[in-house]
């Protein structure tokens, strides 16, 4: 292409720059906000934004002789300011309620295996069942891998 050609092609190029720039400016990096959640958890159920149950995470309250009665205790995991607040321990199979107080979505995802993986939309509360097998389950948030904690199942 000659220099003359380049001169003639200048204006279309400016238009192309503006177009690509406009598309690219829409792109951003970071977390998120919004309404819907696309849960990938097998047992998760989502409720609309509920008032956080003030960390009344009912822990196991003693030795968990889990085999006798079905674990119906409800425990709460709270997400605030990009941090998990987790009870010290939970009974095996307990229903765990996860409340997300942040304005962006998070997940509660077991580090290994498929013990649990729930998405929690901004301001939403999601429940899932704790693993039946006692142990310590490290977990993280998929969009924010630096958010980590662990769930102790007794």
């Amino acid at each position: 292409m000659t220099g003359m050609d380049l001169t003639h092609a200048r204006h279309p190029r400016r238009s192309a720059v503006a177009l690509i720039g406009a598309v690219a400016l829409l792109s951003a990096c970071g977390g998120g906000d919004g309404g819907e959640s696309s849960s990938t958890a097998s047992t998760a159920s989502t409720t609309s934004a509920a008032s956080p149950s003030s960390q009344s995470a009912s822990s196991s309250g003693g030795e968990a002789s889990s085999s006798s009665a079905p674990a119906a205790e409800k425990v709460v995991i709270t997400i605030s300011d990009f941090a998990f607040s987790v009870p010290e321990s939970v009974p095996a199979g307990a229903e765990i309620s996860v409340t997300n107080n942040d304005s962006i979505g998070h997940t509660v995802t077991a580090d290994s295996g498929d013990a649990f993986d729930v998405n929690v939309a901004p301001g939403a509360t999601v429940t899932f069942a704790a693993p039946e097998k006692p142990g310590t389950y490290a977990f993280h948030c998929k969009p924010h891998p630096n958010m980590t904690s662990s769930l102790v199942v007794k």
């Binding site: 829409l26 792109s27 951003a28 990096c29 970071g30 977390g31 998120g32 906000d33 919004g34 309404g35 819907e36 959640s37 696309s38 962006i104 979505g105 998070h106 997940t107 998405n119 939309a121 901004p122 998929k142 969009p143 924010h144």
Partner: peptide, 15 residues
């Protein structure tokens, strides 16, 4: 994963 964090509007994943 960003779509999970930012599901609103056009969606963070699409951006």
């Amino acid at each position: 994963v960003i779509q999970l964090a930012a599901p609103g509007g056009v969606g963070g994943g699409n951006l």
